[in-house]
Amino acid sequence: MSAPGIGLIGTGFMGKCHALAYGAVRAVFGDVPTPRLELLCDTPSDKASAMAGQFGFARATVDWRALVSDPAVDIVCITTPNKLHAEMAIAALEAGKHVHCEKPMALTLDEARAMTEAAKKSGRRTMVGYNYIRNPAYQHARRLIGEGAIGRLIHFRGFVDEDYQADPDLPWTWRATKAEAGLGALGDMGCHMLSMAIGLMGPISSVIGDIRTVHETRPSPEGGERRPVENDDIASAILTFAGGQQGLFSTSRSAWGRKNSMIFEVHGTKGMIRFDQERMNELHLFQNSGPSAEQGFRTILTGPAHPPYGNFTPAPGHQLGFNDLKTIEAAEFLRAIAAGTEAWPSFRDALAIEEVIHAIAASQGRRIDL
């Protein structure tokens, strides 16, 4: 595969993360081509030019349609607000580009399905940015489960909490609207935990969900009357997996003290595995073997024995970070494009996650089969 040209739309938190990932991916993983940071899109034009210079892109534009049709761009990275994902992704696929889109896929299930159909028709590769599943600790958990280290799986618990909306006097933003953001905590954070759950336990076959808006209004940033919050601050669900196991899931953007708490537990007949993203380089394993007086949790600290940790540093305990996970994700996408295989999670895979979060939102205490 020749050096692919990267077109980046959006320069916020995740836009910068993509720029860092594609800028570093060749140095970290020698088996992928060196991407060309070709074209960056943002508004206004002076911001686009400044960010292109900072991120190392050759050119800048304010027109995303010009970016997706540019012949020098092979991969379009979409890191814009959620409402723009579907239109941009479909246009890029129709222009023959591969698409790396941030989560959630879209505002609605219909949009996500249209994106999936466009990907199928185009024959191009797609990936959705569920980068937490790239963590070597998480991948080791999958290996342990596959090897039977905790026996037959019987139960899953997953909790993802942050406090960025805990303060009731925090000003209103676009994230409070269904037209701009779609779902709230479910779409912003909960989908990450569900990507982890599916990777560990398999497909989800039904949900019983409940969602709540804790702070029903927020102060207008312009002053005056408070503005309504239209989506969920908290969401919880009972999950049933296709294998018959039960799961518990909860997410909150109003949990004081939690910064990026993504905790899962997988219970089996011979032990359990526990992980917390706030200590992302550790995995906790319990196995019911040996004398009971000597049983207890083991803390596994990730290192080169947990690929691809060693591509970043040869020293155990030196730790990986959030941006490193996106670099791993970029490498996986480049490999999929080179091999002509589907990346994971592709639009088709991510649609299953969209179906789960929208079912939880619609459930209102009723069981919904998927």
Rank of each mutant, 00 (worst) to 15 (best):
M1L: 13
P4I: 04
K16T: 05
Y22I: 08
R26H: 10
A27W: 03
V28W: 02
F29N: 06
G30W: 03
T34F: 06
P35D: 08
P35S: 04
C41Y: 12
P44F: 04
A50R: 08
M51A: 08
G56Q: 07
R59Q: 09
R59E: 06
T61N: 06
T61S: 13
A66L: 11
V68A: 06
S69K: 13
D70P: 15
D74A: 10
V76A: 03
C77N: 05
I78H: 00
I78M: 00
T80L: 15
M88N: 09
L93C: 01
L93S: 01
K97C: 07
H100W: 11
H100C: 08
K103M: 01
K103Q: 00
D110C: 00
D110A: 04
E111Q: 12
A112R: 00
R113Y: 00
R113L: 00
E117Q: 15
K120T: 13
S122W: 15
Y130P: 04
Y130M: 09
N131S: 14
Y132K: 10
P136Y: 15
H140L: 11
R142Y: 05
I145N: 07
G146D: 05
L153C: 07
R157V: 14
W174R: 07
K178M: 03
A179E: 09
E180N: 11
L183N: 01
G184P: 02
C191K: 00
L200W: 02
P203C: 00
V207T: 02
V207I: 02
H215C: 12
E216N: 14
T217A: 14
P221R: 09
G223L: 10
P228Q: 13
E230V: 06
E230W: 10
I234W: 11
T240L: 12
G243M: 04
G243L: 04
L248P: 02
R258T: 08
F264D: 04
V266D: 00
G268S: 10
K270A: 14
M272G: 15
F275S: 10
F286D: 09
Q287C: 11
A293G: 14
A293T: 12
A293W: 14
G296S: 10
R298W: 08
P304R: 01
H306W: 10
P307E: 15
T313N: 13
P314F: 11
Q319C: 12
G321W: 15
I328E: 06
F333C: 01
E342A: 14
E355L: 09
E355M: 05
A362T: 11
G365P: 13
G365M: 04
R366K: 05
